[in-house]
Design a binder for these strands. Structure first.
Lengths: 241, 241
DNA sequence: CGCCGGATTGAAGGTACTCAATCCGTGTGG
DNA sequence: CCACACGGATTGAGTACCTTCAATCCGGCG
């Protein structure tokens, strides 16, 4: 579905936590480095199930995920809920709030996690002085737009098993981009959450997992996944019956 | 689904075409006005069916729609297609390209239309000098993210008739925000395109229209729509059977 | 007039949903 | 230490909704 996004996502994550690795794409001058450090960034811990922010909260900061993972979910008045994304290490979260100055969705930790806070007003000030930061911020927002186009395609035109294949392949790529195994990983979310994300009922998700396992595409042990054939999973995504 | 977005969308549309009405939210100084005018903006015409840009095209500009309307569609290798949005007067189009420096979808005129070109590099330079422009650009991008959250909710959790109700109500709001009738309007897109946007087959869209008409919610004459009861349409959206 | 594309309508079939029972792993308390 | 309870996951059966395929209608245009 979408390509790996780690490098771009991480870059503005932190200016002085881990400067060499996480800093801006273009090498910055010493002077520019100093400016980056103005971007104070408190690090915070979140326990599994706790809220990073809630729908309606005022925009304070964007958040760079240092460890762990989150889900974002969109709640409708009538109780309908939709998981709009799962975010992992190095990704930026909170962009939805810039539009109205208030968050439009909830962000909840899927496991104990650590985030780096990036006060948004400081980010705007700084990005006026650092063109590469400015452009980078634009790229991150645009990536989020492109990502959602991919989800729309998935929700609008794929069958259940294709959706799950797309989901697994996307996770695989993102793990790979982080130097983790692209074929063996732990899911941090429940079947219900996967279903909400993919526009399916949890039972359908479960059945699709079972079917993939029967066909030898993957090995599933509840939340432990091993992908046995990335190729065949890709074929499944492309709609081979 | 989502609130009207006209005011914010129009603001950066044009600095000197129609300065008083379309300019930045905050009143700018004369000096700032002059800077805005640096943002040269060629106006271009597009015939019905012609491409504003194609997937893969290099990012040159963002486009502010002056008249007419467009659709954006996302094509997958395997032939799958998904209409990701319908854009009308005052909306900004092309944000998807910032991510990779290339457009990720096609934009096609639904009728003869006029757009104002906003060279993106100039926009970045200028927004470093004009904080209100900078913030505004951020808001527009964030709005697009929030908009897609709404579509995800629609595609992920609504039944066919709820989706169509949401679609009609959204159009209604957007027409109203432009000073047009919120209850009588012409659709610029085919049943097939509506279906692609809503994740439905064109026949299902057609049946839903017919059903709404039978129930006295709307009056349909092919592409001429009259909403007879916004309230009841809203109820339908909220899932009353 | 007759064609053409888009829209409507009908009938049959399939996919995923709903409801329900069961399973399994984890954690808790006797 | 084991039994039990609990939540999440799996599996089954029946059904609803939407899709698919097909026929027909309608309006615009050559």
């Amino acid at each position: 579905m979408q390509r790996s996004v780690l490098p771009s996502q991480l870059k503005i994550a932190c200016s002085n936590c881990n400067l060499r690795e996480l800093c801006l794409p273009v090498d910055l001058s010493v002077d520019e480095m100093k400016k980056m450090e103005l971007l104070s960034h408190a690090k915070h811990y979140y326990a599994r199930g706790s809220y990073l922010y809630r729908s309606g909260d005022k925009l304070q900061s964007l958040y760079a995920i240092h460890s762990g993972s989150f889900k974002t979910q969109f709640l409708h008045e009538d109780g309908r809920e939709q998981v709009t994304g799962f975010q992992m290490v190095g990704e930026i979260i909170g962009l939805d709030a810039i539009s109205t100055d208030r968050h439009s969705c909830d962000a909840i930790a899927l496991e104990s996690s650590e985030v780096c806070e990036l006060p948004f007003n400081k980010l705007e000030v700084l990005s006026r002085e650092l063109p590469s930061l400015q452009h980078h911020l634009h790229k991150i927002m645009s990536s989020e737009i492109v990502r959602s186009q991919g989800i729309m395609l998935l929700l609008g035109s794929m069958r259940a098993e294709q959706r799950l294949a797309a989901f697994l392949l996307n996770l695989s790529q993102r793990f790979a981009a982080r130097g983790l195994s692209p074929t063996m990983f732990q899911l941090r979310m429940s079947r219900h959450e996967i279903g909400s994300y993919l526009g399916l009922q949890l039972e359908t998700v479960s059945r699709a997992f079972s079917h993939f396992q029967e066909d030898g595409l993957i090995s599933v042990k509840v939340r432990s996944i091993e992908i046995l054939s990335l190729q065949r999973l890709q074929l499944c995504l492309n709609g081979s019956p």
